[in-house]
Nucleic acid binder design. Structure first.
Lengths: 205, 205
DNA sequence: AAATATACTGAACGGTGTTTATTTTCCAAA
DNA sequence: TTTGGAAAATAAACACCGTTCAGTATATTT
């Protein structure tokens, strides 16, 4: 009686199709083009059908976010190769910034857009960011333990490094940066890179 | 023949009413409750009337943003009092963070939300952020000139300090922060404050 | 084959930003 | 003071949106 198993598999496959199409639309057409109706069109089902697989749009976007964070984690795993912890930190920072440039719309969904976080009910923990956060956290902890950085507390260290990178990236992503400073739009990436290099040099012990 | 003058004054007054109501709604009910229809209700005009005074919603939000930046600039002017440039930088940082906590929805409109930036047509400069940016820029320049900080380039210095503060604030504002770290929601402000204090200590020469 | 359970959808509800044709209001000249 | 034309305001519609629900079609069990 493998019918219920097949049914479950089919349910999972439909969810996959929905999430993949949504992710594709975000990347190719931008977040604002993603609507239940547009997703339904692309998977050739009626809009109402999507609600048989997802409670609401926020839950759907949460799953897209989950996939995006999995991609970021894989990037970390393949691009962080050095033995020296501080060099690994530099690699992590580069991988993070590169990700934000290669997938700006996904970065937005992961770190800026409100919608996917509404999927979390009161007091429920957000797990999507954990692997990426932990990667940085334990790296900072190692750097602190081995006296490679000026930080004392690993949580403050993690939030500081992450916050620094995210601040520059998100200001630029939302057009607040290049239009106010004397730096032209096309030079911004280099300035951001330079600021991050300088920051890492500054926290080095 | 002061009729055209009066007409212009009335036009400006109507725009004021619209912007004030929109700002009030953002602060009191949140950005997502702000719709052309809701604004029209509150000023007791039809929705279509608003389009006689604003080309679209983005232009309207741009004017709300203008006012919000004016408020931030006034905060800077009244709260930055010290003679020593580095102490002024500490005061600026505190004023910035305080503003984000007292007016989180306005902070969102100023630095995160896309909509008001759509009001700028191609290649047009964004002027709203200038006074606040310049306040930080010339302060950083003074700190560099007087050898009070480790930075060499004032633009990099400005973007670094601003980015650091904005990164922590916006991650927290969008719920990406407290739910991932072991820091509880109510302790986050203290952690952010501590991180910023530590950062300022680190850039000090 | 009939009954039941599952999957799906058309149509609607209430909301959004925006446009257009129409009506109302205002003001200057006759 | 009445009237003609400009200016201001609006009702209604358009094209979207997320979501719900009654009803239909399909698949499975009896």
């Amino acid at each position: 009686m493998g019918i219920i198993e097949r049914k479950e598999r089919e349910k999972a496959e439909m969810r996959r199709r929905i999430v993949d199409v949504a992710a594709k639309m975000i990347v190719e057409e931008g977040y604002e083009k993603v609507s239940i109706r547009n997703i339904a069109d692309k998977i050739e089902y009626s809009p109402a059908t999507i609600y048989l697989y997802y409670k609401d749009k926020d839950q759907l976007l949460y799953d897209v976010q989950t996939d995006a964070f999995a991609t970021l984690s894989r990037e970390f795993q393949t691009k962080i190769t050095e033995a020296d912890p501080f060099k690994r930190l530099e690699q992590l920072a580069k991988a993070y910034v590169d990700f934000s440039r290669e997938h700006p719309e996904l970065y937005d969904l992961m770190f800026i857009i409100k919608a996917p976080m509404n999927a979390l009910v009161e007091e429920e923990k957000w797990k999507n960011g954990d692997p990426a956060y932990d990667a940085l956290f334990y790296l900072m902890k190692e750097c602190i333990d081995k006296k490679l950085v000026k930080f004392k507390d690993p949580t403050i260290a993690t939030l500081s490094v992450w916050g620094f990178a995210h601040g520059l990236i998100s200001l630029h992503l939302r057009g607040r940066c290049s239009k106010v400073s004397r730096v032209s739009e096309e030079d911004m990436p280099k300035v951001v890179d330079e600021a991050i290099r300088e920051y890492l040099r500054m926290i080095k012990l």
